[in-house]
Design a binder for these strands. Structure first.
Length: 589
RNA sequence: GCCCCUGUAGCUCAGCUGGAUAGAGCGUCCGCCUCCUAAGCGGAAGGUCACACGUUCGAAUCGUGUCAGGGGCGCCA
């Protein structure tokens, strides 16, 4: 509808240009916006003020000319000039009414568009290290990334969702070693667990599986395992080096177990945790087209190849036995290591290879959803892409701020160290999937999120999720009631009877419904799902107000038909919107 | 020290590529079920848009600076 107004104004401007009232040449695309105040009509255009200068004409005078040049449209009831030179459009009631059959006809597809048609975009999100279960911080990235992906898909992009699995590298070795040590504990060995090891219960569970299935097969004596190791760093031994200690333990594990057995423990840990993450996300309604393994990148030689490319193009140099990438050439604040002095490529090297691969796969746009703590990482990845001759502008990194949980007005303390962190699974169990998905995307991603657990659980209008879902359930309930009363609820086809929708509440509802497609488009293109949550609340509010003010199941058949069609349209839009956010639309509550 | 984010009603936040009188929810106060779910609705009070300059027809929005809060800065991932 907005686009139609825009076209009318464009035509008027062309006419004026042809008549010489406007300088020929570049005529800007006029900006049409929704009015804030109904007294200003439905849409407003500020083009007269914008062009007043080049037209050498006062804004209001120019507005007169534009209005005079506007082609007729049956959708526009009247046009007014107001304020400093706004051109206000008042739509004909029928322009809104036509929306109802359109919504009912298009159903699930209503609000979708083809703006992104033909463009492929990749969205990588969550990508948490498989060294433990997802926590509430990952949850926000999951809900946000999934919503952005679904929104982009809704406006026509071909979306590819991906989870990058950091299954190579030192952290995974630490996990494997932690599992093995816990296993030794279960075998009856006694020793002090390394301070840098993973001490979560899930490690113990995996160790128990190993013990159950293989008994003492993987057992070595603690004395043998800990012989001649550099001392750990503990409160009792502040002089120790926890990094050196754990690295030595990893080496010892490899040595004592041998490649095959070590690999077995490693895989057991990885697979257990990855399966858990997959299941967790699936239950959260988050699915991927691909789980991309870092190890596959290392093993296929892609990492070495990309390092070689950088070396050949003169972007690398050696210092202190390590290989450095001169990222400062591209605006990074310092150079970065791609290969450590022990010959191992760094996580960063894998990441370069991964991002180069993304661009090679031909995505027009590549979106990374990262935790805000990674923001320092952005310049170096972009630098690497530029050094490789790719266009870094194709990569868009969206940084998601952390989420803080609140219970009874108090911040819930979370820390990995104390082991008291809240997992995503625990959160879902406490507040439910719908509330979690909705709450996570209520704020824009760069905003710190205060997640009120009590509110998310409350079954009242204070809780925006229940409020919106309740509107949906209420429509369903009305229909059930109608059937119970023996009303004929088969609605008429097309725009029949819709002229009976004359109440202010009905007009307001139609107006809100007409905004839906615009909201979806804006939320998608700006990567701001929170716009949709706000919209859904407004729509639900309009509906609840209408519900309280008017009876739908009236005796007048034509009026009843019109009202039922309207609330069916409301239900459809609520459903479509909730669906894009991964929130269910219950039939009853 | 450097970098990123944020400062709008008592609280939590919207405010679209600058636009008309600054918006919601919660909380507070006052009302509304003989009626399709009161898990709902209506009304009232509540603001120096952190502060100062600048850009222009016009600034909460853009620019610069100041102040305040949060986060990040490793041959870790």
């Amino acid at each position: 509808m907005k686009a139609q107004i825009q076209q009318l104004v464009s035509q008027a401007l062309e006419r004026l240009a042809a008549d010489g009232a406007l300088p020929a040449g570049r005529i800007p695309q006029p900006v049409i916006e929704r009015t804030r105040d109904a007294a200003h009509g439905d849409f407003a255009c500020n083009v007269a003020m914008v062009l007043a200068k080049v037209a050498r004409c006062r804004p209001r005078d120019l507005a007169e000319k534009v209005v005079a040049a506007l082609p007729d449209s049956r959708r526009v009831a009247r046009v007014e000039i107001a304020g400093p030179g706004f051109i206000n459009f008042f739509l004909a009631p029928e322009a809104y009414r036509e929306l109802v059959p359109e919504i009912l006809h298009q159903g699930h597809d209503f609000g979708r568009s083809r703006i992104g048609a033909g463009k492929r975009v990749q969205v990588e999100f969550v990508s948490a290290n498989p060294t433990g279960p997802l926590h509430v911080g990952h949850g926000r990235g999951a809900a946000y990334g999934a919503a952005v992906a679904d929104l982009l898909e809704a406006v026509g992009f071909e979306v590819h969702r991906e989870y990058y699995v950091n299954d190579a590298g030192r952290q995974m070795d630490i996990l494997a070693t932690s599992v093995w040590l816990r296993y030794l504990g279960l075998c009856g060995e006694t020793f002090s667990f390394p301070s840098n090891g993973y001490r979560g219960d899930y490690v113990l569970d995996i160790a128990a599986t190993l013990h159950q299935e293989h008994g003492d097969d993987y057992r070595h004596s603690a004395a043998e395992v800990f012989a001649d190791l550099p001392p750990d760093e503990t409160p009792q031994q502040p002089d120790g080096d926890k990094e050196a200690h754990i690295d030595a333990l990893i080496e010892r594990a490899r040595h004592l177990l041998g490649d095959i057995r070590y690999r077995y423990v490693f895989e057991l840990g990885l697979n257990n945790i990855l399966d858990d993450i997959r299941e967790d996300l699936e239950e959260f309604g988050v699915c991927y087209e691909k789980w991309y393994s870092e190890r596959s990148l290392v093993e296929s030689g892609a990492v070495n190849k990309v390092v070689q490319r950088l070396r050949d193009s003169g972007h690398l140099y050696e210092k202190d036995g390590a290989l450095w990438f001169r990222s400062t050439d591209y605006g990074d604040e310092k150079d970065r290591v791609v290969e450590r002095d022990n010959g191992q490529t760094t996580y960063f090297a894998s990441d370069i290879a991964y991002h180069a691969d993304k661009l090679e796969r031909g995505f027009e746009r590549v979106i990374d959803v990262w935790g805000a703590d990674h923001h320092g990482y952005v310049p170096r990845v972009k630098a690497a892409l530029e050094a490789l001759g790719d266009d870094p502008a194709r990569l868009d990194v969206l940084l998601v701020q952390f989420a803080n949980l609140y219970r009874q007005g108090r911040k819930v303390q979370m820390s990995t160290r104390s082991g008291s962190f809240v997992t995503l699974r625990e959160l879902r169990q406490e507040v439910g999937r719908d509330a979690a998905r909705f709450f996570y995307v209520m704020r824009k991603c760069e905003q710190h999120l205060d997640f009120d657990l009590d509110l998310a659980k409350s079954q009242s209008s204070d809780n925006p999720v229940y409020y919106v879902q309740y509107a949906h359930a209420r429509v369903c309930s009305v229909l059930k009631q109608g059937a119970g009363k023996g009303f004929d609820l088969e609605t008429s086809a097309g725009a029949t009877n819709l002229e009976h929708l004359t109440e202010d509440h009905e007009q307001a509802l139609l107006r809100t419904l007409s905004r839906y497609a615009e909201v979806v488009e804006a939320a998608a293109l700006k990567e701001e799902p929170h716009q949709l949550t706000h919209y859904l609340r407004e729509l639900a509010n309009d509906f609840h107000t209408y519900y309280n003010a008017h009876q739908f199941l009236v005796d007048d058949r034509a009026l009843r038909d019109a009202r039922i069609k309207l609330i069916l349209a409301v239900r459809q839009v609520l459903r479509n919107g909730l669906n894009l956010l991964g929130v269910s639309a219950p039939e009853s509550m």
